[in-house]
Design a protein around this nucleic acid. Sequence first.
DNA 1: TAATTTATTGTTATATTATAACAATGTGTA
DNA 2: TACACATTGTTATAATATAACAATAAATTA
Lengths: 132, 132
Amino acid sequence: MQKQNFLTKNQQIVLDLVEKSSQPLKAYSILFNVQKKGLKAPLQVYRALDKLVEIGKIHKIESRNAFVACKNSNCVVSNATAFSICESCEKVTEINNSKLSKYLSNFEDNSGMKYSKYNLEFFGLCKKCKNK
Amino acid sequence: MQKQNFLTKNQQIVLDLVEKSSQPLKAYSILFNVQKKGLKAPLQVYRALDKLVEIGKIHKIESRNAFVACKNSNCVVSNATAFSICESCEKVTEINNSKLSKYLSNFEDNSGMKYSKYNLEFFGLCKKCKNK
DNA sequence: TAATTTATTGTTATATTATAACAATGTGTA
DNA sequence: TACACATTGTTATAATATAACAATAAATTA
Ligand SMILES: [Zn+2]
Ligand SMILES: [Zn+2]
Ligand SMILES: [Zn+2]
Ligand SMILES: [Zn+2]
């Protein structure tokens, strides 16, 4: 059996929901919203989320325990992610900046470690919230 | 009453434990280990952790829900943090690289957002695990 | 096609992480 | 002392995530 290169029903249902949302969704909020589609248990959602993260269709915002759809066509896997997070309205945006990603992907320190992946989260106030 | 600029008993107990550990500790593992010192409830630990993070004495490894003592004397607050994480042995090291921190602290994109804080987590294999 | 293998699903239960609410206590200030 | 307010202790509960295992579906190969 070859490696799955399409989405299963549950994965598609979860992805559709996350993609429709303009903001990160929490796992149990996803669960609540897909119950009418037949996903009744947390594990069904978490398994779909795991796979979707793995293939880069969605990303996890670690500091928020929430999930957003990838808006960056380059993200075939979730191995180089950067986000901006407004600490007031919680708006989250995926940063798509080639200089930044190049800088971080090539980053080396003297630890002898080879980094294959990173996740960066910036925090601050978005334009809207700054002007309040 | 002026703002507290010293550690309370509970905060000191938790900090001592986290500083003694060479690796990140989970909140409930901390709880278990400080019970003999009188901290019996999760909240007592979480409150101490919150304050210690706020003043930069410890940092939270978001992807692991774990806490490490700060090894970087510059970290008066936890507002510019970077870590390397071995995905095999889970060893975590705080990265202290002034070029990197300068680059990230000055990072701007076209979103109009002013970033006051960031957290970066690199993943890979440490020297030891790479050579296995 | 039938048998085999493997991935995915469904389901129940439970583990892990974190916070709400509120009374009690301590500490600095007027 | 009286007041304000930060910190603590305590119980309960919310929120996030995984273990275990039986059932089903899909791909492979005999
Ligand atoms: Zn992406
Ligand atoms: Zn905002
Ligand atoms: Zn630090
Ligand atoms: Zn390692």
